[in-house]
């Protein structure tokens, strides 16, 4: 297999902001002494071995896909958050996007309830429903 010597288009370190975030999350935890780098390398290299690059996947996309999975494993092994909590949170974010009107900031709270304004109604100043009594 020939080497792919292509550098990222504009010489930037990351192809996408999520890659930068996954990277810096890991580095911040490490700098705060939350884990030993050997442990990271053990988990990360096992993930690289287990989930190699897919056909057509760029080097950075494959690398950071492996990185993110390894970070999830590390976080759960450290007891910070189990994998199912992380998966549930990802789904919450998905709902938050769907509930947020285009152009508005995506807030996690929107997962449960769309932001006010999207279903804004003028105050009624009257009961919204009345069930007539028999008297």
């Amino acid at each position: 297999m020939m080497l792919d010597l292509t550098e990222t288009a504009d010489g930037r370190t990351f192809d996408h902001p999520w890659q930068a975030h996954a990277f810096s999350l890991t580095v911040q935890l490490y700098k705060d002494g939350r884990f030993a780098w050997e442990d990271w390398v053990r988990i990360f290299s096992a993930e690289i071995e287990a989930a190699p690059a897919l056909p057509g996947e760029s080097i950075n996309d494959a690398y950071y896909r492996q990185w993110v999975r390894a970070l999830e494993v590390l976080i759960s092994q450290l007891g910070f958050a189990p994998r199912d909590q992380l998966a549930a949170r990802a789904e919450e974010w998905r709902r938050a996007y769907r509930n947020t009107p285009h152009g508005h900031p995506i807030l996690l709270a929107n997962a449960v309830c769309a932001p006010s304004g999207t279903h804004y109604q003028a105050p009624l100043r009257a009961p919204i429903a009345v069930s007539a009594g028999t008297r």
Partner: peptide, 27 residues
């Protein structure tokens, strides 16, 4: 205009990691 298309799954997973760790005061 009533919604925003969610990004790729992996981006949601990174947001999940970041928000959970931030809530716990770890980052």
């Amino acid at each position: 205009h009533d919604h925003t298309d969610p990004p790729a799954d992996i981006e949601l997973r990174v947001k999940a990691l970041e928000s959970v760790l931030a809530e716990k005061g770890l980052i």
